[in-house]
Nucleic acid binder design. Structure first.
Lengths: 209, 209
DNA sequence: GTGCTCGAGACAGTGACTGTCTCAATGGGC
DNA sequence: GCCCATTGAGACAGTCACTGTCTCGAGCAC
């Protein structure tokens, strides 16, 4: 499956992301051109577009998008989506580095350091923020049917609550960012989204072990 | 206050919007250039940018953005934001045409017809959808402090629920659009956002006269 | 090894958006 | 009614993100 070509591709993507973030940190997002990024990563501008689609895509880099519907399905409990989200955030945060994937192979998600570097632009750069919104939007559209499948909510309500979920998460993440990113994200998610839990009554027995 | 110049400006903006929508409906959003719109509206391309900032801005045209914090304050009851929203939607829908403003002067919001034409692009054109997201985002950022001011929620919770509110509304609006826009929007908002009402317990006595 | 495929680079083109300059019309002060 | 400062519209050139297409070479199946 993962041929030699695929390996190169992933490695190139990582390089592009890192070099791009270097340049962005140095001179600001808007002042760096795709051409410069491509040159710094020693690839062609075409490749940057092939890999990331847009300039903002370099920073946002889906993650949620590549998650298949299957993965999403057994990751998200439609009866307690906030609990599932919290679990995922906690799992992500407790992973110190490249998580389960081998680091040099460039498999797993990027390091914590890189994650923080990227998140900064989520909130500092308007066009990147918009790209994140688009991602959340797509995530919501895939979550909504799962929530609707329980039959406890109508389709409209499922859509509304799915949006409340993912964009609420975004708000919590922003608060975390604005506070300097010291405390764990999960704290912000748990506190911030507590009012939303009343939507899914079955999730009301809190204080999990 | 509203000098002759301002009047012209508003008239020009309306003309641009209408001509642009004509062209979009005719040939599609992506296939129309700013230059063509400017030519059709008999203004210079510079003016289009001066008035609307971006191509998407022609369709989105703030509305919420130009609403001052004062207006927002006595329009939104922080103890029952969903109720306030519903009220506003109902008020908007019951206004048959140019509402309170004189029509030829181009003062009030656009006609119902134009509203529907515009909303179509909110959901059909990805870049416009992103622009709407950005608008909702800004609205949320102005609503959050009002919600936080009640003291019932923490700042993080206020942000989260503000996002849940505005993006939930968007989801309801999309459902309305997907259904063909026949039934009143308020119905979708009321039904879709009912689960969110449990966040503000004081708003639980429903069935208003 | 040999052919097939698929991806990377090269390249040209488009159009959104920016910054700047000039000029005319406006609106205020007399 | 007249003059001047302000303000905003148009013209124009430039930048850069993004697209489509073509060619070529390296991977992969056989």
């Amino acid at each position: 499956m993962s041929g030699l070509r695929e390996r190169w591709r992933l490695k190139a993507m990582r390089t592009i992301q890192e070099r791009a973030l270097d340049l962005f940190d140095e001179r600001g997002f808007g002042a760096v051109t795709i051409e410069e990024i491509a040159a710094a990563a020693e690839v062609s501008p075409s490749s940057v577009y092939r890999y990331f689609g847009t300039k903002e895509g370099i920073v946002v880099a889906d993650e949620f998008d590549r998650m298949s519907l299957e993965t999403l399905k057994d990751f998200l409990d439609p009866g307690d989506p906030i609990g599932s989200l919290l679990q995922a955030v906690r799992a992500y945060e407790s992973a110190p580095e490249g998580t389960s994937g081998s680091e040099d192979a460039g498999e797993g998600p990027q390091t914590e350091q890189s994650a923080w570097r990227r998140v900064r632009y989520f909130f500092a750069e308007p066009s990147v923020r918009e790209a994140v919104h688009a991602n959340l939007d797509r995530a919501s559209q895939r979550i909504a049917p799962l929530i609707a499948a329980t039959g406890e909510l109508t389709e409209t309500q499922a859509r509304v609550t799915a949006n409340a979920l993912v964009f609420g998460y975004f708000a919590a993440l922003e608060q975390w960012y604005l506070d300097g990113g010291d405390r764990p994200i999960a704290d912000y998610v748990e506190e911030g989204m507590r009012p939303l839990r009343s939507i899914w009554p079955s999730s009301h027995h809190e204080h999990p072990a």
